[in-house]
Design a protein around this nucleic acid. Structure first.
Lengths: 274, 274
DNA sequence: CAAATAGTGTCTCTTAGACAATATCTC
DNA sequence: GAGATATTGTCTAAGAGACACTATTTG
């Protein structure tokens, strides 16, 4: 195999030795993490945002992220950043979401951003090493309004969504353009990443068990149901939901208090884990 | 907004002027296109592969692709390469598939590759400008064997798939490792892209209309059914399938000959397009 | 004890799955 | 005309959707 020569008469070894990779101008590559958890009383999803302390988008809120090292995969970079930026444990669900590549998405330079989505239980976050503020924001997505809110700090970020249908081959594909309708804004195209992530989550809980990443180890049936309801954005029927979900659960034979506000004691369950 | 100053006292404009983007070593970024169509008699899917004429993976078959220009999005790059490399018309279904980022996936240098999937009708392909050979390969994916075959040139590429289950948070995720079991091989990690694309397609035809991108404008019910059967890898019931699909179709009030070998004349239909 | 939530049962309607029967076309 | 394929119809089983009822817990 190494014996094959190319049109210049070079073997692979010789070729690699003389290869100059600087033929093309190269973009920077970053990863960003859409870090989601459920609120304490299971009222809504939350997203972790970090306040930027420098241009561009100074003072704006952004997803946690950073540059991809030259010797690491984007997945490894995402794990590393997750730890570094927030001090969060890494044993969480982590899935590649979408690669953002609009050439003018970053005014500093050309940056291609590989977005990941992470599902975890809520936990206190350390401020990053460079004194950036990190906060959980309540998410609501109703009536074409995407709203991110932090009550304690009284921060409110709102986007208005406009449906956009474009032809992709013979099929119509629905996309969204977004318009910020508050003073506070998200940095870069992070609003698009958040929306994309919410849609992915909504779609994927219907045929997978990823929702259990958002719950503690032990939970009640109303707790799981609430998680599905928040993500799907609609009420579900108790009886039907319970019957379906039970096949994925093991009873712990304890009665525990539901996480839901006003919830009662109910049977404890664990995720069976296939 | 431009008036806000960072900790060095710079406005955004001043900051951008002095910003040096060369702090981090940057990977090259490429796009690759998984170009799929149906075979003439609707027997199987086909993938377009290009034979490499230089190291690395000299003489191996690879997906069409190329470098992302510094002023274009990866989507635009994919469209451009589609045209340049193969002369194929660009009005085809084009969807981002996955970003491949293993640091040693290219022995020349660090390359991050954004893979796209394209669905089209079969058409003759021009050899690329740099005299590379471009051929359609019949795909078969059965019993954990991925096989790519070109009858005319007698080329056979086979991979054996091994199921690999890994924990992602609390859920088990199924992946595959692949092992080439023929002399001919695919370049880089393109085998992984092909498998990922086939799985995406299999999943997505169940809830979308993308399959119609693989058919000519007018077709018969048995034709559509066959496309679904090939992609799903199983036989479907005529009666049930027809009843379901008809809501997406308009009759052309003509009888046309089915594309299927041994097929009869049957009612012609067009995709209604939502 | 009152009000709300947890848990169970049942009914309907739709859909998926499976065959059977007839009509039509190709060779 | 024989053998295949196209087209339509029917039956069953499983699942989604909807609601009612009882049991339990909280305040």
């Amino acid at each position: 195999m190494g014996e094959i020569r190319n049109k210049d008469g070079l073997t692979e070894e010789e070729f690699l030795k003389q290869y100059k990779p600087s033929k093309y101008e190269r973009p920077s590559v970053t990863v960003d993490m859409l870090i989601l958890c459920m609120s304490r009383y299971l009222d809504n999803l939350k997203v972790l945002l970090i306040q930027r302390k420098n241009h561009p988008y100074i003072n704006c809120w952004a997803l946690a992220g950073g540059f991809v090292g030259i010797y690491e995969s984007t997945y490894d970079a995402a794990c590393r950043e997750l730890q570094e930026e927030t001090g969060l444990v890494t044993n969480t669900y982590l899935e590649q979401l979408y690669t953002m590549s609009n050439p003018d998405r970053d005014p500093r330079m050309r940056v291609i951003d590989v977005a990941y989505i992470t599902l975890m239980r809520e936990q206190p976050v350390l401020a990053g090493d460079d004194a950036k503020k990190a906060l959980w924001f309540d998410i609501s997505l109703h009536d074409d309004i995407l709203e991110l809110k932090n009550e304690e700090e009284n921060i409110n970020i709102k986007y208005c969504l406009h449906k956009k249908i474009f032809k992709n081959g013979v099929v119509d594909t629905t996309g969204y353009t977004q318009e910020s309708i508050t003073d506070e804004k998200l940095a870069f195209d992070h609003n698009e990443i958040i929306l994309e992530g919410l849609l992915r989550l909504k779609n994927k809980i219907l045929y997978s068990d990823i929702a259990f990443n958002l719950l503690p180890e032990e939970f009640t049936l109303p707790d799981v149901k609430r998680v599905y309801e928040v993500i799907l954005g609609k009420e579900l029927y108790k009886s039907n939901f319970n019957a379906n979900i039970k096949s994925k659960l093991i009873s712990t034979d304890c009665k525990i208090t539901s996480m839901i506000k006003g919830g009662k004691k109910a049977a404890g369950y664990k995720y069976k884990g296939q």
